[in-house]
């Protein structure tokens, strides 16, 4: 069961730089006054990418057994139900972003 420890420092530094740059891009986007709809979609996409980087590399989902990934991704099933229900609300409140 024991694995020989592997040095991931380079990967961690790369992910850190990616997270910092993505945060800068996010803040920059709000400053330049982009149109709302593409901005909201891009910001949510960037946040999901950042969250994914943290989960996969920092929380070791990439290196651990797939069993943990199943637990980790289980809440996403509930999230999809919530998104489905919220999109109904989108449909009836068209003045917001769409």
């Amino acid at each position: 069961m024991e694995h020989a420890p592997v040095n991931h420092t380079k990967t961690y530094i790369t992910i850190f730089i990616a997270l910092a740059v993505l945060t800068l891009i996010e803040v920059g986007m709000t400053m330049v006054g982009m149109p709302k709809t593409p901005m909201v979609i891009l910001l949510i996409a960037l946040a999901l990418v950042k969250a994914g980087l943290v989960a996969v590399y920092f929380m070791h989902l990439k290196y651990d057994s797939g069993f943990l990934s199943v637990i980790a991704y289980a809440p996403l099933a509930v999230a999809s139900i919530l998104i489905l229900m919220l999109s109904l609300e989108w449909a009836f409140q068209p003045h917001w972003i769409f």
């Binding site: 996010e26 901005m39 943290v54 989960a55």
Partner: peptide
Amino acid sequence: VEIAGLYWHFVDLIWIILFTLVYLI
């Protein structure tokens, strides 16, 4: 230490989403 790390990264992960939703959008 790894289990403690999991908790700490989760807190960071939630903040990443929260920062976008509450502050930026």
